[in-house]
């Protein structure tokens, strides 16, 4: 924790709270039928986004699956533009054309927000390739789930990246379930970092529930990838508290199991570690949370008040 520093730690804590409160607001909005379609929340996994994205430069890029709101927020997108997208409003980050699964920001090199399991993995590989092609020292983080780690796209991408020295960081957000199927029932070797050996690259397992561990280990790993242009595979072991999507009651896991992970909550753990160092106290934490809640409330209000996309929007952006 000490190596992170107080200022950075406060930023990270705030980012994790923004993600958590944003997703809680999404669930509420869904119950109220303001948000429809699919909606996959990130609650429980916040340490991963925060511990990784904070190491990227402006020129670096990243891509992820449909569980994509938090990465957008941590990278610097506003809660307003993402919430408005959830509501299908024209003020949304992709003008109401994508919804929950398709958060993108060209300005911030957020390459989405993808709905097909594993479909984004070659895309991230290509973004990293482009940076190298243009002679820049940039990297790409490609996030995907444990379910996607068995997809052909993952193996094809890692093979290409290893073959061509593409600086891509493959982060498996291993939340231990591909929808309702436990990883051990879908992936022959659940130590996903072991896949790296098959491609002659490095693989790491990281406790994705511990923001300090994620942040400190990823700092070195990303620096090394930037320097060597050799891809890596990270098995980021984490857990989602809610169902795969809002329509999932989560009957495939026990309440005790979920509780055991909630007891290791990444925000509580990080906050406690900060308190030990005297970087924050209970009152300051409450004040911070209050401020974050107000920010999310404002985003919800913005989304509610925003106009629907005009009907001519249906036919725009088909071709560039």
């Amino acid at each position: 924790m000490k190596s992170i520093g107080k200022e950075e730690a406060l930023k990270m804590l705030r980012q994790m709270l923004v993600c958590r409160r944003f997703e809680e607001a999404c669930l509420k909005g869904y119950q109220q039928k303001h948000i429809t379609g699919f909606c996959h929340t990130y609650i429980g996994q916040e340490a991963v986004a925060v511990g990784t994205l904070n190491h990227l430069t402006e020129e670096d890029s990243f891509v992820t699956s449909y569980r994509c709101h938090a990465q957008g927020l941590v990278r610097g997108m506003s809660a307003r533009e993402i919430m408005a997208e959830m509501y299908g409003k024209v003020t949304g980050c992709v003008r109401g054309k994508g919804g929950s699964m398709h958060v993108f920001s060209k300005e911030l090199n957020h390459l989405g927000g993808h709905g097909i399991v594993g479909g984004q993995i070659p895309v991230g590989t290509g973004a990293a390739f482009a940076g190298k092609y243009e002679g820049k020292k940039v990297v790409n983080i490609t996030y995907f789930g444990d379910g996607a780690s068995a997809q052909g796209t993952f193996h094809e991408s890692v093979n290409l990246a290893a073959l061509w020295d593409i600086p891509c960081i493959y982060i498996c957000e291993n939340n231990q379930y591909g929808m309702g199927t436990a990883t051990k029932r879908a992936v022959a070797n659940t130590d996903i970092q072991d896949q790296a050996a098959g491609y002659g690259i490095k693989g790491y397992e990281i406790n994705g529930l511990d923001a300090v561990e994620v942040y400190t280990k990823m700092k070195d790993i990303i620096a090394e990838v930037r320097e060597t242009s050799r891809p890596v595979i990270i098995n980021m072991v984490t857990y989602r508290y809610k169902g795969h999507s809002v329509s999932d009651a989560g009957l495939y896991r026990t309440k005790d199991e979920v509780k055991s992970f909630m007891d290791q909550d990444c925000i509580n753990r990080f906050s406690a570690q900060m308190q030990e160092l005297g970087w924050i106290d209970e009152d300051a934490y409450k004040a911070l949370d209050k401020e974050v809640k107000a920010e999310i409330k404002d985003a919800v209000k913005f989304a509610e008040d925003s106009p629907w996309p005009p009907l001519d929007e249906v036919a725009t952006h088909v071709l560039a």
Binding site: P122, V123, T125, G126, A130, Y133, G152, T153, S157, L160
Partner: peptide
């Protein structure tokens, strides 16, 4: 390599970044 899905997707990502 003979991995059309991989290199096509790589092309998509590269094109999104301006190539």
């Amino acid at each position: 390599p003979i991995t059309e899905s991989g290199f096509t997707g790589l092309g998509v990502g590269a094109a999104m970044m301006g190539l």
